[in-house]
């Protein structure tokens, strides 16, 4: 039994053929060599004003630090550096580069749209933590709303769009629409968050510890 009918590279090729061009802060432009990836703000810049790169692995280095030289552990952070272009000759190498810019974005989106992904409600993610993060199981629904609104803020912190509710049957009602809109513009592949990242789990721990300390617990 095979899991997929098409490989992820073929899925990407289909998306591109249907006019797909944007993911997070990057834009994918057809070029004489194959594909050219840029920061979306650099889409119209003269090629000569941008530093050219030619390997998928360059994407890993481009996305590692922000313009101020700060490490970017969260690739969804809206602070991808400008001033580069990445020239790739095959869709397979474009796929590899995308997985460095936005890890798992392609696979998550394909699995999600094909009904093969099961996003974890945030309270379930917190409830299964062990060790120093076990305490996050104590966040109630309102705590979850508050910590997600703060930690995952679309405008400033993370461009992933959350596919999970607070709890089964309890959607978020306090987030800006783009944070939960999983079908943005037709030419854009949403960067989905199917399961909370470790930064959110760590924020939840800090949040609940402060709350309990304030309550004298």
């Amino acid at each position: 039994m095979t899991l997929h009918t098409k490989s992820l590279t073929e899925e990407l090729a289909d998306w591109l053929a249907q006019g797909g061009r944007r993911i997070g802060e990057i834009v994918i432009l057809p070029s004489a060599e194959g594909w050219e990836v840029r920061h979306v703000d650099d889409a119209e810049s003269p090629a000569t004003s941008l530093t050219a790169h030619k390997t998928p692995e360059a994407a890993r280095e481009i996305s590692k630090y922000d313009a101020a030289g700060q490490y970017r552990p969260l690739k969804g952070a809206p602070n991808l550096v400008h001033g580069w272009r990445l020239i790739l000759d095959t869709t397979a190498s474009l796929r590899d580069a995308l997985d460095f810019f936005y890890p798992a974005a392609l696979g998550n989106w394909v699995a999600f749209t094909q009904g093969r992904a099961t996003p974890s409600p945030i309270r379930e993610t917190f409830a299964r933590q062990t060790g120093m993060y076990r305490i996050t199981g104590l966040l109630d629904e309102d705590d979850c709303r508050a910590v997600v609104a703060d930690n995952c803020a679309y405008a400033t912190n993370c461009r992933r769009r959350i596919a999970w509710p607070v709890a089964a049957g309890v959607p978020f009602d306090n987030l800006p629409p783009e944070k939960t809109n999983l079908e943005p513009a037709p030419d854009e592949m949403p960067v989905l968050c199917l399961h909370a990242c470790s930064l959110l789990v760590a924020s939840a721990r800090t949040y609940i510890k402060k709350k309990r300390a304030a309550a004298g617990q």
Partner: peptide
């Protein structure tokens, strides 16, 4: 502590 996370890596592969 980084991306891709453990819960998403299986979505990134084609092999059985």
């Amino acid at each position: 502590k980084e991306e891709p996370g453990f819960r998403e890596v299986m979505h990134m592969i084609d092999s059985d």
